[in-house]
Design a protein around this nucleic acid. Structure first.
Lengths: 209, 209
DNA sequence: GTCTATACGAGGATAGAC
DNA sequence: GTCTATCCTCGTATAGAC
């Protein structure tokens, strides 16, 4: 039962962190709900931060997958939409990280460095996609504009769930859909007219879905 | 010395919250640094949340002032720049609120409602300014675009200091300047060519300042 | 208004038996 | 691997003297 208990601790921790916020979940809560002893929990993990670091490692792996680019061809608007969906799903599944981002990063150098890496990679990814759109003639923007746009995409993506949560939005799918639309509206003004119409059609379609 | 002590508690609390993060500052820390007793602190405030609510009231008043529109004329780009500066200065001075926004809002219904009010007012303000630019012919955008743009401005403004902090930026003026530039880059693609050039000149000027 | 002293509970963590 | 028992520390908050 060793692996199993360790796994159950991680799963429940993630669920409780997401639901109640990491600062509001103690090791005792976790042990209680699993009906194991606190001592047992501390057999499997050095401390609470250890649990968070293990969860972060899974988050990082998942996000890395979501940031993989299709090889050998330029992405179209549907590709982008799909990728944003995977990114937001990942953020949603580990939203406790984003809810208390500054505190969590301040407590662990390791997590801080790895999060910086993810942010860097995501920025490069966004920049690359945007440059692809520009060189395909789908989008028109200067280098400075691409850079600023990539940053704004990162900021909005990183904090959208916090923002929509503060605004009272509770439904996951709703929050994710509106998050994607916000990002798309960020790059819409740079698109050619034909592509802008295409984007609007996509938005309409997903609004009804 | 009554008013004075109360005032000193509020001032130091704000400074410590901003510096170390609200969750990492206890009432004992505050009392210690002021060289007063914990009991004395609790004579002036019911509890820690009471201190936060008082600080929030000051924040709210300050932000309300920053959101006042000049009467009787449409704002130009310099007006907008100045207003954004006042907004960011206010956010900076109360950045502990933004650092742990979700947690702080979850603990106090009062603060939650008032923050929602500020967010609403800021969104209306942004929308109004954008509509002004559109009707003055300085900017071209549909209603849907104005709405999405206003939301993105709010998201970026709300979380910019967190984002730039996570990225390692420590200098206040630097962070604020880059925050303003990011917001300006958000509306740049909607501006007429002449105004876009004007904006770039402004950016250059402030970059050197 | 301010202090001293203290109660109380919570959370993190460990020792040692089984 | 798991449990029981326990410790320690910290943070909040109050009582009562001055």
């Amino acid at each position: 039962m060793a692996r199993r208990t360790r796994e159950r601790i991680l799963e429940l921790s993630l669920a409780l962190f997401n639901e109640r916020g990491e600062p509001n979940v103690t090791t005792n809560h976790i042990a209680d709900e699993l009906e194991i002893s606190p001592g047992n929990l501390y057999y499997h993990f050095r401390n609470k931060d250890d649990i968070i670091e293990q969860l972060f490692a899974r988050y990082e792996e998942r996000m890395d997958q979501a940031l993989v680019q299709p090889e050998g061809r330029l992405p179209n608007l549907e590709d982008i939409w799909l990728q944003l969906h995977m990114v937001y799903e990942c953020i949603w599944d580990y939203r406790f990280l984003y809810r208390d981002l500054v505190d969590i990063l301040s407590r662990s150098r390791k997590v801080r460095l790895h999060f910086a890496r993810i942010l860097k990679r995501a920025t490069e990814n966004a920049t690359e996609v945007l440059r692809g759109l520009v060189s395909a003639g789908i989008m028109r923007a200067s280098n400075a504009e691409v850079e600023a746009l990539a940053t704004n995409i990162l900021v909005v993506a990183t904090f959208w769930l916090n923002y929509s949560g503060v605004r009272g939005e509770k439904d996951e799918q709703q929050a994710i859909q509106s998050g994607i639309r916000q990002l798309m509206m960020l790059l819409a003004p740079f698109l050619r007219d034909a592509e802008r119409v295409h984007l609007h059609t996509l938005c309409e379609a997903y609004n009804r879905a």
